[in-house]
Amino acid sequence: MPSAPATAAKARPARKLSWRQFRAILRKDIVMELRTFEMLTSMGLYTLLTLAIYAIALSASGNGFDVRLIAAGLLWLAFIFTSMLGLNRSLVHEKDQGCLEALLLSPVDRPVIFFAKAVGNLIFLLIVQVFTVPLFFLMFLSSHAIGGQFWMIPLSLLVGAVGVAGVGTLLATISVNTRGRDFILAVLFVPLMYPLLLAAVGATSAGVLGGQSYVADFWRDMALAGGYDVIMLLAAYGLYEFVIGA
């Protein structure tokens, strides 16, 4: 028993250090991004390009076409491709000058790196969403009323973004060490994201379209997306140590 308080006393400063390391990594990523705007500009521009392509794709559909039917899908499509761009960037600058090695040499628990990176990525993804969603609505849905309730849309985007950031951070850490980084990330990312996307598109769609029993549909899809988030984040968290040490 005498060892118990000793380990507890030792664990507390360790946890405090982990918290300090977590904040340091997160702050560093944000400071670097605000200095270069590398991720945000490339993601933002990519979104604009995607929206332009949507306009072309929908140009022949005529006035009678109800864009709301596919709005959720379009929104998620833009989001998923831009997020891959950003995820790649977030690990590339760690790799560039061997900084990742310096990070690994410090007395940091590997999950701390995972959580800090994932939270940083989540923040950037949300910033991009804050730009994208109003723009999308302005450009494609200004003549349509929302069938469901508006709060459903940001909420479903948030739950989706959590999964994208978590699993994406793991996959980006893998792909950054491969030949053809961007391509590999896409190949690994899209099929793994499939269930989350399906559920998230369903939830967003319920918010946009409304209709019969849309509240129940929304919560069912949200529960599925949330379940995916929990399971896959746990898996990514458990596997990250192997990936980052390889």
Binding site: K28, M32, R35, Q97, C99, E101, A102
Partner: peptide, 12 residues
């Protein structure tokens, strides 16, 4: 560790 790689963040 002092490496031939600087192990520093260029944008900081």
């Amino acid at each position: 560790l002092i490496s031939h790689n600087p192990l520093l963040y260029p944008d900081l």
